[in-house]
Write a protein that binds this DNA or RNA. Structure first.
Length: 726
DNA sequence: AATATTCCCGTTTTT
DNA sequence: CGGGAATATT
């Protein structure tokens, strides 16, 4: 079409040949295999703008990102390229939620359905387990939740699941799944996985709607395609079934969500799915120094069966990757804090620094050390904020207001603040609702017929009155609605006096109000339902703020897609990174490869300086244990690393007990533990297991010998690193 | 019915 | 270690 020539030209400036090819590819499927730091975001942004200026209009483009933060940033960047408004940029979940609200009648759900958060989902799963007359002790809700989630990610509803169930265990899960779905229907609630599954299902069954949407979204761009699950894959393909204008970007080496149903084959088989697909490889890295890239590349090269990519950079080598060995987790945190102070006095801003860890539990030591050193920091944990009691209380009132069927919220707030409505009263009301076939909410708020409650009737009436006081908020925009509810529910009064300890619930409520105000200023037309939806779909990184003058702490998973000049990765230890649980999980190569990719993702976030640290003794869930360094550190090519041991010599060299436990206690052995045998010499534990209840170890020795030993009889000595003399 | 206390459990990562 | 649930106490 060639309209607007000069600005279209501008979109192609400063692009390499492959980048330009990706931006200008018009109709037909396109796969962009983009290594870390290869300018992928720039390509997607420019491509979206380019399409909007040449062959489509903005509202015909659908761009799917992995986080809301990415969606917001991409939306802003595209807008700044002056292509007109109306482009849809969202996460899969947000897109699906919006679609389901608009087409709720077609999908067979209530318009104001509740989106269950993690806690609420667990509650309902637990309720389902109890409904099946099973005990949550024998059937841990967390496990059941995972099974149900897996089924949903795989597009298996309860009926399909029941059909494929094999064995008594599956059948029990199937019963729980069925009960869970019934509860969700009753509560007019959907969980995260439902959002995707329902939309995929709808698109499969409702050809009219599918056609209509495909016609609307003439171009579809999906980022982080390597992390899509079956439901997401289906949605993408159903929306592009006839026009095939699907552009997938991603990197198989950065696939880190297999545990939640992501299927790396989605990206690997893109070319078979779309035989005429154009494939563009972005292999030049603009982000990291040569040493950082070489180290990361050396690590990922150990994964087998991958699509090899030749990562390269023109950037200078820079400083070697620093491999820091510390004595303990607290030392590690302190050394990092000291190092940050040093960086700071060398002129670096705190905004430019990030610390990554595999598990959230590792953030505490870091927080303490940073606080002690007077370093400002922020943690990527938006979800945690919305999990606080006072926040959940307010949101529950709002959710109940818009969706009276939401019994989870009702039960949460009926006695919050305390109204003297106890378990007995609630039980009686539930029984009453069941026998009369009424909805619990209607029983509770029914002014006339509460006589069966006796003395408690007046208390329940007080709750009904509160709900009626709140009702006008339904018509307000988010901020005033929120303020109205906080004031009229009694929560404001309750939390104003409850400011004990270092928690400050009242302040958190105010923060929530400003979050609502913020949302409202960005989306002036947003309703309270929109805002609730947005809060339910928030991710940890969404809460990060730029220009705060603070170091950023986050999990490795949260770090995906980000970059920082200076990065520290902590806890490079066997069992932590790569993570595995001590009991189960046989060494599964798929798992370790995903852990390796996770490590790769973390390393490739770093632009200038990367430090990877481990602690010889790590305290986790209250116990200090001797650790073994991560095999990932061993994979890093020598020429690009610098090894630095900050362990106090002899600090733990004696045979003395550590925190009341003998260091040679077999309880402390993990996979990877070094051992010495009188004839075979030095070896490493490959597996741990039991023979008739007695612990055994499968050991591989330096001399090539391999054998299984009973730990209590074998002459195996545990070896600490200082004894090996590395 | 509400609060205080103990104990027991898990134990990655998250839209 | 820390949260949640069961138990004890008022």
């Amino acid at each position: 079409m060639g309209r607007n020539d000069s600005s279209t030209e501008a979109l192609l400036e400063n692009l390499t040949e492959p980048q330009r090819a990706a931006v200008t590819h018009a109709e037909g499927p396109l796969l962009v295999l983009a290594g870390p730091g290869s300018g992928k975001t720039r390509v997607i942004t420019r491509r979206a703008a380019y399409l909007a200026k040449t062959v489509a209009s903005a509202h015909q483009i659908l761009a799917i990102t992995f986080t809301n933060k990415a969606a917001r940033e991409m939306g802003e960047r595209i807008e700044s390229l002056d292509v007109g408004a109306g482009m849809t940029v969202a996460t899969f979940h947000a897109f699906c939620a919006r679609l389901l609200r608009i087409h709720h009648d077609r999908a067979g759900i209530a318009r104001n359905f509740t989106i269950l958060d993690r806690d609420d989902r667990r509650k309902v799963v637990k309720e389902a387990i109890e409904l099946c007359d099973l005990s949550p002790t024998n059937y841990p809700p967390a496990r059941m939740e995972q099974r149900i989630g897996q089924a949903k990610n795989d597009m298996q509803g309860p009926v399909a699941y029941a059909e494929s169930a094999f064995g008594p265990n599956d059948e029990t899960v199937s019963r729980i799944y069925t009960a869970y779905e019934e509860l969700l229907t009753e509560y007019q609630s959907l969980d995260f996985d439902d959002l995707l599954m329902r939309v995929a299902d709808l698109l499969q069954k409702d050809e009219e709607l599918r056609t209509q949407l495909e016609a609307k979204y003439r171009f579809i761009l999906i980022d982080e395609y390597q992390d899509t699950n079956r439901a997401q894959y289906l949605i993408a393909h159903l929306l592009a079934r006839d026009h095939h204008n699907i552009c997938a970007t991603g990197d198989p080496d950065q696939s880190i969500y297999a545990w939640r149903g992501a299927d790396i084959r989605n990206i690997l088989s893109f070319e078979t799915d779309h035989p005429n697909a154009k494939v563009v490889r972005l292999e030049q890295n603009y982000r990291s120094t040569g040493h950082i890239l070489a180290a990361a590349d050396g690590l990922i090269a150990e994964n087998i069966g991958r699509k090899e990519k030749a990562l390269w950079t023109e950037n200078e080598d820079g400083a070697p990757v620093r491999i820091l060995e510390c004595e303990s987790g607290t030392d590690e945190a302190r050394l990092i804090a000291e190092d940050i102070v040093a960086q700071q006095s060398a002129g670096l801003g705190l905004d430019e620094i990030a610390v990554f860890y595999r598990v959230n539990a590792l953030s505490r030591a870091l927080e303490e050390a940073l606080r002690a050193a007077g370093i400002r920091y922020q943690i990527a944990r938006g979800v945690e904020f919305y999990g606080r009691k006072e926040i959940k209380d307010v949101l529950a009132y709002l959710r109940l207001m818009v969706n009276p069927a939401d019994r989870v919220s009702l039960l949460r707030v009926i006695n919050t603040p305390a109204r003297g409505i106890g378990a007995t009263t609630v039980r009686r009301m539930i029984a009453h609702a069941e026998s009369s076939g009424e909805r619990l909410f209607d029983v509770v708020t029914d002014e006339r017929d509460l006589s069966f409650l006796g003395r408690s009737a007046s208390k329940v009436r007080a709750f009904g009155a509160a709900m009626r006081d709140i009702a006008p908020a339904m018509e307000m925009s988010p901020r005033p609605a929120l303020e109205h509810v906080i004031d009229h529910s009694g929560l404001r009064a309750m939390y104003n006096k409850a400011s004990v300890g270092d928690e400050d619930p009242a302040a958190n409520l105010n923060e929530l109000i400003s979050a609502a105000a913020d949302h409202q200023s960005r989306f002036p037309d947003a309703t309270i339902v929109d805002w609730l939806e947005q809060t339910a779909l928030l991710s940890d990184v969404d809460a990060l703020r730029e220009g705060e003058g603070a170091v950023t702490l986050m999990t490795l998973h949260a770090a995906k897609g980000l970059e920082f000049p200076v990065v520290y990765m902590v806890g490079l230890e066997e069992g932590l990174l790569p993570f595995f649980r001590s009991d189960e999980e046989r060494p599964d190569s798929g798992h370790i490869e995903e852990e390796r990719r996770l490590c790769f993702v973390g390393m490739t976030r770093a632009m200038k300086k990367l430090t990877m640290s481990s602690a010889r003794y790590r305290m986790l869930r209250g116990q200090t244990k001797r650790t073994v360094r991560s095999p990932f550190l061993v994979s890093l090519p020598d020429h690009c690393v610098e090894r630095d041991s900050q362990c106090a010599v002899g600090a733990h060299s004696g045979p003395g007990p550590i925190e009341g436990k003998l260091p040679h206690d077999i309880e402390e052995w993990g996979i990877g533990t070094l051992v010495r045998h009188p004839t075979n010499g030095l070896g490493q534990v490959l597996h741990l297991g039991k023979i008739s209840g007695r612990p055994k170890a499968d050991v591989k020795f330096e001399n090539g010998h391999r054998g299984v030993y009973m730990l209590e009889f074998a002459e195996l000595q545990r070896v600490d690193f200082d004894e090996v003399g590395d």
